[in-house]
Amino acid sequence: MSRTFEAADTLGADTIVIHAGWYEPGGRPAAREEFHRFLDSYPDPRFTLENLPAVFRGRPMLGTTAEELVNLTDGRIQGFCLDFAHLYCAANCLRTPYSRALEPFRALNIRHFHLSNTEEDSIADHHLPLDYPGGGLPFPEVVRCIQARRILRFAGRGL
């Protein structure tokens, strides 16, 4: 993290996007505790927690749903990053309609969007161009979500 803070200080960044990460199957409670220890060790108001796909190379990830993000931060982080493609992959993995997965994010303090595409029905995020042939991101719902926000920023194809 020292390099991350160095970069944020050097660039004058007011936002540091972080992931909660992945865990080995069965290791969810320990991973959650480790994330809390991390936040206790590095309290920084610039932290912005991003939602993740449900799995990465076969391993489950922390922070997939809006509810889980809130639960993970436990009040230690005030802002969130909504990655639309990550949510699409998570919704496919959890067999949840995208609109249903997206709805709870409307209640969060979203400070940052990530926008990219990924293959239709994919559970793996590949950060593809928005006009990628065969891309599955439901743009009408994405645009409605953006329009409903007084959003601060978003970063194209942002990981």
């Binding site: 993290m1 991350t4 944020a8 960044a13 540091i16 996007v17 972080i18 990460g21 990465f56 990981l159």
Partner: peptide
Amino acid sequence: IPAAVHAPHHA
């Protein structure tokens, strides 16, 4: 250029 920072991640 104004910047936001993204920490290293799982990849």
